[in-house]
Design a protein around this nucleic acid. Structure first.
Length: 422
DNA sequence: TCTGGGGTCCTAGGACCC
DNA sequence: TCTGGGGTCCTAGGACCC
């Protein structure tokens, strides 16, 4: 029987901030979405203040003004680097693992002779000591039960952050499933939870006891797998090699509404440059490029315009210049004067990676001089920070930058922002 | 006044083919 | 009156995840 562990960081983004701000160890913290829009991470203390997940910033600004809450703009450069350190540390203790998201990973503990709970505690202790981040570990015979155990480990302080499903008696397992709503189960979102409730399936236990054949007919194979996994039959495997991405999207809302084509073009050129760099970092080329343009969807009084168009690239490419040219041409097709724009984005599709890319014998070799130029671009931007070297197109318009009024330094990735010892 | 961004998978239905 | 049965590919939409 397989054994999976799910390890995830507690209030991950906020915990990353705390590593460099020990003065905030016990205080309520929230981290905001891009553009300081809404709350996406809350510490336990912030939850205790009654702050909702997804609450718009203005709802919590009051608490901040009174000094009851510390607010951070999201700093993905910092979180991504802390994530890498956390994953490297976990890799030093488990034979195989899968990075599932920025703050969590699955590990395969099948066949290990160690007691799973002890191993879970070792993982927690090492991540805490080496990286400074608090984690919880859930262990079970399926990924879904590992997730569920992790959820229980978070909820019940008595468990000291680790729960092995296999260590519970059948009676305790039944009680645990009965104590949580079906919506807490991985793979059951709001819509499915509503439909399940209509069938009298309210708790995780109800779901575990549902007839898989009936569930399959009503909801398809995905939910059927959830039911089987809840009963300890593993249907999902550990994917330790990440499949290459199939598409890449890069878009941001603006800090303020934009009317002029040039400002849109500057923002779009910026997103395209970032997307092209991401593409090169994973060794892919794109065959298709798209641009999307949006007005502010929450401003009902404004005329709305939402447009998107695609263009096949003559040659699949990861070249910043070629992609930017194509993106700007699409923008000029889509742009209509007179609207107040809130967001622009670039989409790259038909990505080819690795072997698939080699097999594309129709694609001519990229010009070596151009390759050297792109290599230099990536090297400089990696060493001195993204955006150090960029195209002129990014600089022709202003006013589109994100709002990030509570940004912390990139303590670990920029020389000029290293933490100093006082 | 203020409400993010980036992914994946599955299914149903239509076009088309033999 | 009768008017098959599969396949594949593509797209749109819906659901989920973090």
């Amino acid at each position: 029987m397989p054994t999976f562990a799910l390890i995830d960081g507690n209030s991950f983004y906020a915990s990353c901030e705390r590593v460099f701000r020990p003065d905030l160890a016990k205080t309520p913290i929230v981290v905001l979405s891009n553009n300081d829009g809404c709350v996406i991470t809350r510490t336990r203390e912030a939850k205790a203040l009654g702050i909702r997940m997804g609450a718009p910033y203005f709802e919590v600004a009051n608490l901040e003004r009174k000094g009851l809450l510390t607010v951070f703009s999201s700093n993905y450069e910092l979180y991504a680097d802390m994530s890498r350190r956390m994953m490297d540390t976990i890799a030093s203790l488990v034979p195989r693992f899968e990075v599932y998201s920025i703050d969590e990973c699955f590990a395969d503990l099948t066949g290990l002779t160690d007691d799973p709970t002890c191993l879970g505690q070792r993982i927690r202790a090492r991540v805490e000591q080496w990286v400074g981040l608090p984690t919880c570990v859930g262990i079970g015979p399926s990924k879904t039960l590992a997730k569920f155990s992790n959820h229980l480990a978070k909820r019940h302080g008595k468990l000291s952050g680790v729960l092995d499903w296999g260590s519970l008696s059948p009676e305790r397992q039944t009680k645990a499933l009965a104590s949580e709503p079906a919506a807490e189960v991985w793979g059951i979102g709001r819509r499915l939870a509503e439909q399940l409730a209509g069938m009298g399936i309210d708790s995780a236990l109800d779901l575990a006891r549902a007839d898989p054949a009936l569930i399959r007919r009503r909801f398809g194979v995905v939910v059927e797998r959830v039911v089987r996994e809840l009963n300890g039959t593993s249907c999902l495997t550990l994917e330790d090699v990440a499949p290459p991405r199939q598409q890449l999207v890069r878009s941001r809302s603006f800090g303020q509404l934009i009317h002029e084509r040039d400002a849109l073009a500057a923002a779009l050129a910026h997103h395209t440059a970032q997307a092209a760099a991401d593409l090169r970092a994973q060794g892919s080329i794109a065959g298709l490029i798209g641009v999307q343009l949006h007005t502010h969807r929450f401003r009902a009084q404004d005329a709305q315009y939402h447009a998107c168009d695609w263009q096949a690239l003559p040659v699949a490419s990861c070249d910043t210049l070629a992609l930017t040219r194509a993106a700007l041409a699409l923008l000029d097709k889509l742009y209509r004067k007179g609207f107040s724009y809130k967001k622009v984005g670039v989409l790259l599709g038909e990505l080819l990676t690795g072997a698939a890319r080699q097999a594309d014998w129709l694609a001519p070799e990229t010009d070596p001089a151009r390759q050297a130029l792109l290599g230099a671009l990536d090297t400089v931007n990696h060493r001195y920070g993204r955006g150090t070297l960029r195209l002129g197109a990014e600089a022709i318009g202003h006013g589109w930058q994100m709002r990030r009024e509570h940004a912390s330094p990139c303590y670990t990735t920029r020389f000029d922002q290293l933490p100093t010892v006082s």
